[in-house]
Design a protein around this nucleic acid. Sequence first.
DNA 1: CGTTTGTTTGAGCCCTATCAATCTACGTGG
DNA 2: CCACGTAGATTGATAGGGCTCAAACAAACG
Lengths: 252, 252
Amino acid sequence: MTDSAYPNGRNGVPCLACPLRLKPAFKDKTDEEIRFIQAIKTEHRHLPAGSDIIHPGQQDAELYTLFSGWAFRYQLLPDGRRQILNFLLPGDLVGLQASLLSAAQHGIEALTEVELCVFPRKRIWDLFVHMPNLAYEVAWLGSREESLIDQNLTSVGQRNASERIAALVISLYRRAEALGLVTDGGFRFPLSQQQLADALGLSLVHTSKTWSRLRKAGLFAIAEGRLTLLNPRLTSRMALLYEREVAPRPLI
Amino acid sequence: MTDSAYPNGRNGVPCLACPLRLKPAFKDKTDEEIRFIQAIKTEHRHLPAGSDIIHPGQQDAELYTLFSGWAFRYQLLPDGRRQILNFLLPGDLVGLQASLLSAAQHGIEALTEVELCVFPRKRIWDLFVHMPNLAYEVAWLGSREESLIDQNLTSVGQRNASERIAALVISLYRRAEALGLVTDGGFRFPLSQQQLADALGLSLVHTSKTWSRLRKAGLFAIAEGRLTLLNPRLTSRMALLYEREVAPRPLI
DNA sequence: CGTTTGTTTGAGCCCTATCAATCTACGTGG
DNA sequence: CCACGTAGATTGATAGGGCTCAAACAAACG
């Protein structure tokens, strides 16, 4: 909980120098806000791929910011079926719902190696008391996550297999793009087909077949763990997307 | 925006005497909090069933509290398919996501005749500045809604038709129960089968067949627009629910 | 009463699930 | 260096849950 500025170390990058905030997707912060964030940040945590960040039913989970890497939220049924609810990319809040509701209705797992900025649950309250603008952004981020889940629910409920895959690819592409993670029309794509299937609400086999059909149709390509969007127009059309402008995104 | 206490009239019930707050599901408020809410409430609005409360793409929507009646949030695909994202019951916030994100990614429609308490969008900010406890509850309610959508997404992605219906019935039953709307094991159930189908991600025909099969199996009964849960145990088992305690619910 | 809106039921087909086997990549140990 | 084991991806065959088409039925309404 030290406030000192340090190049790195236990607490990683100082918030004042946080590279995430420089990305186009992120809203400017005042020095006061950044210092407050720095003050309540207790740790900069590294976890390997596959780690449980929050396990289902966990009480009083901490709040995190995803500094680097990918994660996903999921829910399990008693018989083992799993639904992946949404994917978390750098800059996303991790565990807000679990923090506010005090008992997590879901789990969160690291999809790749991740770095997390750790904020104790109790401090969220301080933030609401002392930093209303930051509190407002927390609420904003919560609503934005809900909006993403809305879209996934619409996908799973109304779109067929091809349309679901196209919609997911477009959605992830746009998010990666907003974070400056897209180079040469492609970005790191660390999902296994089982994870894809669980996110799409499809079986593994059908996911594999549809996935490869869309690749052969030239919509996108996979190589070396990267996805390259070869035909954005066609992919977007197949996804049956409404082209609605998304609000500009402030982020902690 | 008057602060006066009145028995009813243009602004309906004064917040100090709001009957909703007396229900077991609602958290106590201080007089100061209630007066603040009263002060920013601009209208008590009545709308008939089927009204658009927020239309898809709407800018700068107002924020509402659902005082009475049911509503639902939905998303449309360009070809007309509709996904109902969640149902809104008395006491729920209406349009938080639309207010925070400034452009609604969804629509909200009155399912029955409704009464809404109207709060102007700009005042939400005042609430964050002056009433951190209320702001925290707004965020809490946002997370609670997200949790409901998570469960719907899991349902639509992983459960078959019977399981989905059972899960929806149980979920609505519990929410109605927490609001004291259940009498004689039943509650008002104003959904058409088309709305059910759009919420479940099933076709109208298949919804009708499965719905009547579960009724004939004795899980629940429909009469005079009311649903009576005849066999909660069996319904709950069919829904493949995890029995996890839900957090106590504060509400504005 | 005719009309409209919503519900029910039957028939046939297709999309997706399931089962099963093969293939590939990759890491480990002999 | 190569045999082997494991995890993930791919492909074929078959079955079933859910969709679509279509028509009958019921209830609400002017």
